[in-house]
């Protein structure tokens, strides 16, 4: 179903029976939680394997991917969450979360582990250091108006596999993609009040 929502669309309560966890080991998890709650979704923070119970989906936020990778291991979440994701738990990964979902990561650390959910290659900090971080309007498939996107030391998509759908591009590079239950963004939809991309994600797995 196409989504035609403007910035001024009222918050909906149509998702009240959904629970979307937010991985809260490090990074911008609190802002993702706020965006989900604005849509009427239950959004518990996930820090240990017990927190994974009863989730309909999960958000992997932006932050430092090396830090999250470490904490996924020490918290015992890596294997349990990895299994849930492999079993089809819908996931929205933004920035560092995109890196965790990618099949191949370049310029990462050799010990950095991910969930291998999407057939793409990404280069960590591929857009450069903080001085190259930027904001820009991005045209998104299914959205009437552009989405204002913040790219912070963002990962750069260098290869997109056959089964991957590109939902948005910027200067010829994919920045928003989907493969089955996995949606990823190189930028940070949680840093603006605009909840349209969270809605696209929720619509991708929930039949309203």
């Amino acid at each position: 179903m196409p989504i035609e929502v403007g910035d001024d669309a009222p918050a909906t309560s149509g998702f009240a029976d959904l629970t979307v966890g937010v991985l809260a080991l490090q990074g911008a998890f609190a802002l993702h939680q706020q965006r989900l709650q604005a849509l009427g979704v239950e959004a518990p923070l996930v820090r240990t394997p017990n927190d994974l119970e009863n989730l309909d989906a999960i958000v992997l936020p932006g932050g430092e991917s090396t830090t999250m990778s470490n904490l996924l291991a020490t918290s015992g979440l890596f294997d349990v969450l990895g299994q849930r994701l492999a079993d089809g738990l819908p996931v929205f990964g933004t920035c560092a979360g995109m890196i965790l979902c990618a099949a191949e990561v370049r310029d990462g650390r050799s010990d950095q582990r991910g969930f291998d959910l999407m057939d793409i290659s990404v280069t960590r900090n591929g857009y450069g250091r903080q001085l190259e971080s930027f904001e820009a309007d991005v045209e998104v498939t299914g959205l009437a108006k552009p989405f204002h996107a913040l790219f912070i030391r963002a990962p750069f998509v260098t290869r997109v596999g056959d089964g991957v759908e590109i939902l948005a591009e910027l200067d010829g590079s994919a920045v928003l993609l989907r493969q089955q239950g996995c949606t990823v963004a190189a930028f940070h939809p949680e840093l603006t009040n605009d909840t349209r991309l969270h809605r696209i994600f929720i619509d991708s797995f929930s039949a309203r």
């Binding site: 080991l25 490090q26 830090t67 309007d137 912070i152 940070h188």
Partner: peptide, 21 residues
């Protein structure tokens, strides 16, 4: 049009460091 060095871009990096050391 993209812009660098804006206040939201600066604060964005601080947001990404939350919950960290």
């Amino acid at each position: 049009m993209s812009s660098t060095g804006t206040f939201p871009v600066k604060r964005g990096l601080a947001e990404m460091m939350k919950g960290g050391v």
